[in-house]
Nucleic acid binder design. Sequence first.
DNA 1: ATTATTCCTATCTGGCCGGTCGGAATTACG
DNA 2: CGTAATTCCGACCGGCCAGATAGGAATAAT
Lengths: 151, 151
Amino acid sequence: MKVSTRGEYGMRAMVSLARLYGEGPVPLSTIATESSVPPAYLEQLIGQLRRAGLVNSTRGANGGYELSRAPEDVRVGEVYRVMEGPVAPMVCVTEDMDPSEDLCPMIDGCATRLVWIKVRDGIVEALDSTTLGDLVQQNRKSDMLSGTGVS
Amino acid sequence: MKVSTRGEYGMRAMVSLARLYGEGPVPLSTIATESSVPPAYLEQLIGQLRRAGLVNSTRGANGGYELSRAPEDVRVGEVYRVMEGPVAPMVCVTEDMDPSEDLCPMIDGCATRLVWIKVRDGIVEALDSTTLGDLVQQNRKSDMLSGTGVS
DNA sequence: ATTATTCCTATCTGGCCGGTCGGAATTACG
DNA sequence: CGTAATTCCGACCGGCCAGATAGGAATAAT
């Protein structure tokens, strides 16, 4: 059960944008470098984030991307869902589920479903209790400790 | 981020075995039917579970498989790990990690790592706080309520 | 013997992840 | 203006691996 590179890269890109929040549009090339994502691929991913309304874009020279909201107002769960779809360790426990549909092939109900629901809820909790703001802040703190922040 | 069919099927098979615990060896064909898993495939999977020591096997006619421990003593996390490997939503946060190795390509440490660790811990908690015993018990209870248990 | 079963390992196949490419549209700037 | 910097869009594609299947050898009951 791994997060795909879409999720990984998307998250990294958003953190980069969070770090540069308030300094105007950041060109794709910069984000790509800063987040170590192949530019051509990132373009695809960031398009998704834009369509989802998480980032704004400015076209033309001096254009680029920026967060549409302050980092503290963006839950990482939002980013995750845009990139990876609804949280669902298993098809039968997807977040946005119609309660009526039960496509489990099991004879008398599936006992394992209970576990997957717990797992899903664990993931959701982890994702929705953190914001991009938390991430950059935490990271800066650890930079300080390791001395990287002092030059 | 989905659990593969190995995890799904493996868990189902183990629940079947948990239900039949104490009634002697259960042939593969039975488990396959009961858990709706292709027999040939299940054979492969249950082999893993056996090698991991979670099930015992008896060969020859009247042979089959059975749990090596009581259902209440088997955490679903154990089953999960046998089928899916260490819990790791992301390579850089795998459970059985050597703390020294850090293969993150990021320049100044990866801020996103914090999320993935939280996610991982959420999953681990969900998996390790439940036993096979819990599952069959819970399921029987819901059977009662829906009337399936009454004949 | 014959039958029921586990055990082993080789092989196959489709889907999709992860990525590239080319070019069109848009805007700043001198 | 024209040119350079940028976003935007959709088509393409190769490789890997999940998800099986197949066949046969070993083992044990009857």
